[in-house]
Simulated scan of single mutants.
Amino acid sequence: MNVPLFPLNSIVLPRGRIPLQLFEPRYIDMLTRCLKEDRGFVVVLLRDGNETASTAAFYDIGTYVRITDFQQLENGLLGITVEGVAKVSVVRSWQQEDGLNIGDVEVLLDEADSKVPGRFSELPSVLRALSQHPVIRDLEMEVDYEDARHVGWRLTELLPLDKQEKQRLVELQDPLERLSRLQELLEALEEG
């Protein structure tokens, strides 16, 4: 699958949502094409550099997203909301003349369906608390607090972790391994 790549300093995972503001011509053109062709693009985490740089180094595991909403914002920029569909691996990437990154991607296997084990019972509670923030509530995400994948994906998106740690969590394919790592990280955050 050949798709546009959108390098960000944020992540989104399957069934997660993230609001974006578009102002660069390359991304406005990308949005127009995606809407016209009824297709999405891939959000990848920046390895280094910033989101508006003409060239970007990014990780090769990201998430294919679809546009769920768009509107003109009060600041004059175009606002969109995207929802994660599937994790993908960028096999090859290149940059078009307009600066838009394009990649050949392969969809990764779905993670195993698993309930949140009792030893991780604190994690859904933390997620429930984070989900009460008005910005998160406005995204209207449906979260299954008993599904280990959902809980791990949303906590990976929402917790204040450094981006290398977030990327390690994104790359895990075992939801229970992700929950275990998130529990360790939460304990470290609590200890200060």
Rank of each mutant, 00 (worst) to 15 (best):
A148W: 00
V42I: 15
L123A: 01
V143T: 08
D38K: 13
L169A: 12
H133G: 10
M30G: 07
D110C: 12
P160I: 08
E190S: 01
V91S: 15
E51L: 00
L46W: 13
G79R: 06
V90W: 13
A129W: 11
V143N: 01
P14A: 07
R26S: 13
M1K: 09
K166C: 09
K115S: 09
L13I: 04
L182F: 00
P7M: 08
G79Y: 10
I61S: 11
R92W: 10
Y145R: 00
P124L: 02
E74I: 06
K166T: 10
Y59T: 12
L176G: 05
L172S: 11
E140L: 08
L20S: 04
Q173Y: 05
E74P: 11
S125W: 00
S10R: 14
P25Q: 09
G40H: 13
D29V: 09
N101A: 03
A188I: 03
M1S: 11
R178Y: 07
V151Q: 00
N50I: 03
E165K: 14
V126F: 00
S121K: 05
R181G: 01
G103C: 09
R154F: 02
S10A: 14
V42Q: 13
A148F: 00
R128I: 01
C34S: 07
C34D: 08
V90A: 09
T63Y: 09
G192K: 05
I102L: 10
L179N: 02
S121W: 02
I28V: 15
A53G: 14
L189G: 01
L31Q: 07
D110Y: 04
L172V: 10
E111H: 08
P14L: 03
R168A: 10
E177M: 09
K115N: 06
M141P: 01
H133P: 13
N2T: 10
D162G: 06
R181E: 08
P14W: 08
T81W: 08
G40T: 15
G84Q: 07
E187C: 09
V65T: 12
A56L: 14
W153P: 01
S121Q: 15
E122T: 07
R33Q: 12
D174P: 07
A129L: 14
V170N: 11
V170Q: 05
R154V: 00
P124M: 02
I28W: 01
P117S: 03
K36V: 08
E140Q: 11
G99P: 15
S125C: 05
L127E: 01
L186Q: 03
T32H: 13
S89A: 14
D113V: 10
L189Y: 00
D147Y: 04
R168E: 12
G152C: 03
E177T: 14
I102P: 03
D147E: 06
T52V: 15
T156R: 01
S131E: 13
L185P: 06
Y64G: 08
V143R: 02
K36L: 11
R128D: 03
G84R: 05
A57N: 09
G99Y: 05
D38Q: 15
R119A: 09
N50K: 12
S93Q: 14
V151S: 00
E190T: 00
G62R: 06
D69F: 15
K87H: 06
K163T: 11
G79H: 10
D29W: 04
G118M: 02
V105C: 05
T52F: 03
H150V: 02
L169S: 01
S180T: 04
N50L: 10
L31Y: 08
R92T: 14
V12L: 04
E171S: 12
N101Y: 14
V42Y: 14
